[in-house]
Structure formats: C-alpha cells, structure tokens
Amino acid sequence: MSHIYNSILDTVGDTPIVALHNVTKGSKHKFFAKVEYFNPGGSIKDRVAVAMIEEAEKRGDLKPGGTIVEATSGNTGVGLALAAAVKGYKCIFVMPEKMSEEKRALLRAYGAQVVITPMVEPEDPLSHYSVSKKIAEQTPGAFLANQFFNPDNPTRHYKTTGPEIWEQMDGKIDMLVGGAGTGGTLSGCAKFLKEKKSDVKVICADPIGSILYDLFYHKKIVDPPGSYKVEGIGEDMLPGNVHLDIYDGFVRVSDPEAFDMTRRLVSEEGLLVGPSSATALVGALKASEKLEKPSNIVVIFPDSGRQYLSKAFNDKWMIENGFLKEADVKTAFNRVISAEEALKNLKK
C-alpha cells in the first residue's frame, strides 16, 4: 500500500529528463529535455494549477462550492479543472479562438465551461483577459486564478521544477531554455538555479510576433504584436511573472521552424510534444551556437503533442498554413491507405 497515491493530485511533478540525440546531432553540446507531459493533466501547468488552488484555499480566497475562473491557452485550464474535479469546484475558462479543438474538448471533459474570445488586443473588452475578469467579478464565490500575475505560479516552480532539474542533472547544468507565456516556469526555475550556480544562463525562446523579445533588448515595443500559430508562449503584453531581470537572453523562433521541429521530435526522438516544446529546442540550438565550451543544456518541454493532432500533426492544416508541401505528403510513409493499395505495394 506504500506505493498508492491518495489522489491524482499527488502524482503531479517529478517528471523525467530525457537526453536528446538525433535532432541535436552535430552539436558539441549535450541537450536534455524536461518532459512535462508526464504530469496527469499532460502539461507543466498542473504544477501551478494545484499551487494556485491550494494557496487560495489557505488565504480564504476560494471557499467550498466556489467557482474557479481563468484566462488560459488551455493547459492551465486542464490543470485547474483536474484539481477542481477532485476538490469539488466549478470552472469557467476563457480562451482565444486560435486554441486547438483538443484543448477545448479536454476542458469540457473535466466538466468545465469554455468561453471562446476573438483574437484582439489585451485591453479590448472581448479579450480573454478582460472577459475572464468580468466573469469573476460578477460570479458569486468566484476565484480568478490570474496565472499571469499570481506569485504562486513562479513560486511553485522555484520550489519544485527548479530543484528537480538541479538534482536530476547533479548540478551539471550550464543553460536552461524555455518559452514564456505567463513566465512562471522560466522565472521560478531561473531564480532557484541561479541561487545554486550563478553562471547558469537562462534563455527564453520567443515566437516571432511576441513582444517579449523587444521588451528585453529595447525596453519598449519595436515591432507591434503579430500573429503566430504556436500556442501557450509569447505575449502581446508583459505578464507580471515574466521577470526579465533574471533572464540572460532571448532567441526568436519562427512558426515554420517550430512546427518542423515538432514533427522531427516525434519521428526522430519518439517524443510527441507540442510546438512550444519544439520552439524551446530550436531556441536552445540557436543559443548554443554562442557557447564556446561544450555545455549541458536543459530544455523545458511543457506539454504533449496529443493536444495538437488537429494542427501540428494534421497534414491538411500544415499544408494550408505553409508548413508542409503537398508533394511531400503524397510520398510519405506514414499515410493511411486502403488494404487494396497496401497489397498492391507488396507486388512492386
């Protein structure tokens, strides 16, 4: 009985680090992936979801029978919904229309209400930030998780994810790379790792179209926010949990680079991860080019590719968005074919 968990929430964390070989071939550096889809809700956001709920309960901000409200790209919502199901809370999640159908379905599967908003500026009354605040204000007993500004977010990574990385790497880490949506993961891990080893470099991989790169290097927005297909990272505003002063640099990554690497990771490493993970790895490969001595680089892989089957792993969607050529699909091995075609191929 000693190996039985009291609830599914007790399985959050202690995710593995996996060495990468094939997609990093040719580099003098060693790359390691912190694979967060091993969490029960399928992403790194399970960590902060449990933390925000538990701390809100302690403060009295969330009471029995209450409703959790949040603006989310999907993963935090899943983590919150998972915890809410165990603890008996209702959930209302507000997300931008670009988020995948799989994420919407997952949230509903856990019993949450999903509100979809158009892709507009953060200050717009119809943005997912604005709508979530309005719902929380007018819903009795509501708690707005507010992951973008809630300090419980980076604190949980400071207390769990950072220490896990340090222990798993036996302290032999030279660079940490990840994306920033709320900023909680990178900020919390950076704080812990730099306390252990001050010269650890922390790099943020930022999608082209996000404003965070400009804010880090220019202290202002140079290029206005643009659209991009990668979900969950990059921002059109500065979240309070993006602690720019603790980061060492930013690397820009394009959508084509991210989606190509997403497919390479599953076909060459067996890691079915989302485009934000691939963005982080592309960013790590670019950042590593500036390192003189062979280094150990840990890359945070936030979630699973199962939530992007309708996008990153959908040939039609990839072709429509210019990330894949139709001719390549027709000659690919991993196609669905009829029994007649399969038998015909055997005779060739």
Rank of each mutant, 00 (worst) to 15 (best):
P154N: 02
I173K: 06
M119Y: 05
A142G: 10
S130R: 13
W166D: 00
E123T: 14
V115L: 13
E101W: 15
Y129A: 12
R108G: 03
V120D: 11
F148M: 03
T160S: 13
V120Y: 10
F148G: 02
N153S: 01
G171D: 07
K159A: 00
H128M: 08
D152H: 13
A136S: 13
T117Q: 05
Q168H: 13
L176E: 04
G171L: 06
D174H: 10
I116T: 09
V115P: 15
L106P: 08
S100P: 04
N153H: 06
L106F: 03
P140G: 11
Y110R: 03
V131D: 01
E101Q: 14
I116K: 02
K159E: 01
E101G: 14
A136L: 09
T139H: 07
M169Y: 03
K172W: 08
N153T: 04
S130T: 12
V114G: 00
R104I: 13
A112V: 03
A136T: 12
P122M: 10
R108C: 08
M99L: 03
Q168T: 15
G141Q: 11
D124N: 08
T117R: 04
Q113C: 02
V114F: 10
M99K: 00
D174P: 02
Y110T: 04
A136K: 03
D152C: 11
R156G: 02
H157W: 09
P151H: 00
W166P: 01
F148K: 02
G171C: 08
L126F: 08
T139N: 14
E137K: 12
E101K: 13
A105Q: 11
K103Y: 08
L107A: 05
T160F: 12
F149C: 11
Y129L: 14
Y110E: 06
Q113A: 06
V120C: 10
S130W: 02
L126W: 06
Q138E: 14
K103L: 11
M99C: 09
L144A: 07
P140F: 06
D124A: 11
R108F: 10
P125K: 04
D174G: 10
D170M: 10
R108T: 08
Y129M: 15
E102W: 05
I165T: 00
L107W: 06
A145F: 07
T155G: 01
Y110M: 12
P122Y: 07
M169K: 07
A109M: 12
M99I: 10
G111I: 13
T160H: 13
E102H: 01
T161I: 03
L126T: 15
Y129P: 05
A109D: 06
R108V: 14
F149Y: 12
F149G: 14
W166E: 02
K159H: 08
A105S: 08
P122V: 07
P118W: 11
Q138Y: 11
L176H: 04
V131Q: 00
K172F: 05
A142T: 13
N153E: 04
M169Q: 11
I173E: 00
M99E: 10
A145Y: 09
A109I: 02
S100I: 10
E167N: 14
A105H: 11
A105L: 13
R156C: 14
D174I: 02
G111P: 09
P125F: 09
L107C: 06
D170K: 15
D174Q: 09
M169P: 05
Q147E: 15
K133D: 01
A105T: 12
L144I: 11
A109E: 05
D174A: 01
L176F: 14
L107G: 00
A142N: 12
T161G: 01
